[in-house]
């Protein structure tokens, strides 16, 4: 029963490590001075208290959920599309959210909650269009059609986004659009955290519980069918869970690239391809990576660095490192 014990230890590690990073991150920032705040300050300084409880705590939890969601959704999408280079926003979800947020900024309001709502709506619309066109398309298999439809829908939204940028007031709206597109958690409050929390929890639980089935769904349809899998139904459920968590986190955080692509890769390097093993690791690493990137974003410079820039920078660097060192393999 050595294996069982090892599994239990691994699970405990995968849960406690992100929580530990979360607690540490609460004391990282630029108050009272850059980088580190003495935890003892919480007892005496009221500003420190309010800063940690009302700003850093919801923000850091959101960063954790963001990382978990994108990493889990990325892992699922890569399995469902049998393609390790797929990322969670590619079915029109990211570009849809970007378009929706910009639409809201230019024509409606700059209220963050309103932007989140409209962004979610368009993220889901992006997926719905991709799905609809894929159904109508008369070419190729189902997965290929979804990919093609996703590319086309993304292109449409990105063109629309271009028009909105052109129309936007360069002194106020345009800046806001650009900042939103670069991603960031600077506007997170408890309210926006509560807005995404239920969807993220339900989505991640579904993905976690069905993680072994992902291996079956990555098989050719006829093989999966012969193994008793209801391919269409199970694939739709997992796709829906992934898109839902992606859409809500993008709606509050803007477009945060690379997490959904790179974290599942690293997880697979550690555990091997079996989704039963790599999905939990991916979720845990995603949580840590999310917190880490957000902490860097708000600490490195006096002004905030957009989160998307940090994730892209780190993500791309790690990606290149992994690609040029193909034999870097940790034995599970």
């Amino acid at each position: 029963m050595n294996i069982r014990r090892k599994q239990i230890y691994t699970t405990i590690l995968l849960i406690t490590l992100p929580l530990l990073v979360l607690v540490i991150a609460l004391f990282v920032g630029r108050y009272p001075k850059p980088i580190w705040m003495n935890p003892a300050l919480l007892g005496s300084d009221e500003i420190a208290q309010r800063l940690v409880l009302n700003l850093r705590l919801p923000r850091t939890i959101t960063a954790m959920l963001l990382g978990m969601s994108l990493a889990a959704a990325g892992g699922v999408m890569q399995m469902l599309f049998r393609n390790p280079l797929v990322e969670p926003g590619f079915l029109g979800v990211s570009q849809g959210a970007g378009f929706g947020a910009s639409l809201c900024i230019v024509f409606l309001t700059t209220n963050p909650l309103a932007i989140e709502g409209v962004a979610t709506l368009f993220a889901v619309l992006g997926l719905a269009f991709s799905y609809f066109f894929a159904r109508k398309m008369r070419y190729g298999g189902w997965l290929l059609r979804l990919v093609l439809a996703g590319i086309a829908v993304s292109a449409f939204f990105s063109a629309g986004l271009g028009i909105l940028k052109y129309l936007a007031d360069p002194n106020s709206q345009l800046q806001q659009i650009v900042f939103w597109l670069l991603g960031g958690l600077y506007s997170i409050t408890w309210k926006s955290l509560l807005y995404i929390l239920p969807v993220v929890i339900v989505g991640i639980i579904i993905i976690y519980l069905m993680r072994w089935r992902l291996n079956l769904l990555a098989l050719e349809d006829e093989t999966a069918f012969s193994l008793g899998v209801s391919v269409g139904r199970e694939r739709t459920l997992l796709l829906a869970a992934s898109v839902a968590v992606t859409a809500v986190v993008i709606s509050v955080a803007g477009i945060v690239a690379w997490i959904g692509l790179i974290i599942p890769h690293i997880a697979r390097r550690i555990t091997g391809a079996n989704a039963a093993n790599f999905i939990p690791v991916s979720i845990s690493l995603g949580a840590i990576f999310g917190i880490l990137c957000d902490s860097l974003a708000r600490t490195l410079m006096p002004g905030e660095i957009p989160l998307g820039i940090i994730t892209s920078l780190l993500g791309a660097a790690i990606f290149i490192f992994l690609m040029v060192k193909p034999n870097l393999k940790v034995k599970a």
Binding site: N83, P84, A218, E220, T223, R268, G272, A273, N274
Partner: peptide
């Protein structure tokens, strides 16, 4: 099946 393309390193 006749053949199978395996995308991941199982």
């Amino acid at each position: 099946p006749q053949s199978e393309h395996v995308s991941f390193e199982y």
